[in-house]
Amino acid sequence: MAEITLVEAVTQALAYEMQRDENVILLGEDIGLNGGVFRATDGLYKKFGADRVMDTPLAESMLAGLAIGMAAQGLKPVVEFQFMGFIYPAVDQLVNHAARMRNRTRGRLTCPMVARAPFGGGIHAPEHHSESTEAMFAHIPGLKVIIPSSPARAYGLLLAAMRDPDPVIFLEPKRIYRIVKQNVPDDGKALPLEQCFVLREGSDITLISWGASMHETLQAATQLEQQGVSAEVIDVASIKPLDMDTILNSVAKTGRAVIIHEAARSNGVGAEITSVINESGLLSLLAPVQRVTGYDTVMPYMKLEKHYIPSVEKIVNSAISTLEFA
């Protein structure tokens, strides 16, 4: 079996589910013959036709609104927002309607849609193409926010998102779209949505991250190992709802935690995780929880972006200072 990249795993999951369920319909800009600007829908237009891989007019609120109407009719729309930076016109629809439809009709109408968007920096993209605003959506009751960090998890989590009866924001870390390859059997097996993944077991410190930063976090764990530190590494994957059990169990074992996210620091998902650790795991802590994050600045353009994105060095240094705290 050939190894595939994360973006190819997305394509594989979409194709599998479209084959399995004729209610699955893709909507987006340039997703048809062009196969999407990142090629996430490559080949699907030819395979499934224009009725199921729908190139739409260029309007993001429309994309979300269409999907809400289609979902209310029992279809499974999967929308591609070309970049997360362009999802904001759709926020009204996602927050005011997608997230609330089940609740406001007491279950009569539901919104089983998936909104996919590539996000994050590091690919030398133009302005507005590199932000990480997952916390914005994670704050909204009624949504689920999922971020894969490997081809296998992209495949299994996207399948799960498409089979979920509620709206899922599925954010794809485009910096690692093509840097890792894995064997991903096309077996149609979904992964659970409300669950963290322990990527590496360890006993001295817990490193918690998601998305593209998992890549640097795993490298940091390897470097720490060379310094005699055993780091446990957790891929949060499900930003909302959060699987705090896995995180709390790990922190109970290690007593120390560093949270790494590319998104801006203040009011980020790291703050929520820290808060729950404080509420429910304070007595197992041997040091304050630290965060290695992007800054509360506008995401810099490509010349400076590497100084914004959490580096392996910053993660290692943060872990060492956590370990050296009393």
Binding site: M62, L66, G69, D92, N96, R104, T105, R106, R108, L109
Partner: peptide, 29 residues
């Protein structure tokens, strides 16, 4: 808004004009 007869109809929409897009989605289906 849990209408018993018109199960497919949408509830009263408050955020202005958002409902027009839902209608296009229903029509697409």
């Amino acid at each position: 808004s849990d209408y018993e007869e018109c199960r497919e109809d949408f509830p009263l929409c408050v955020p202005i004009a958002t409902q027009f897009l839902h209608a296009t989605g229903v029509a697409t289906a």
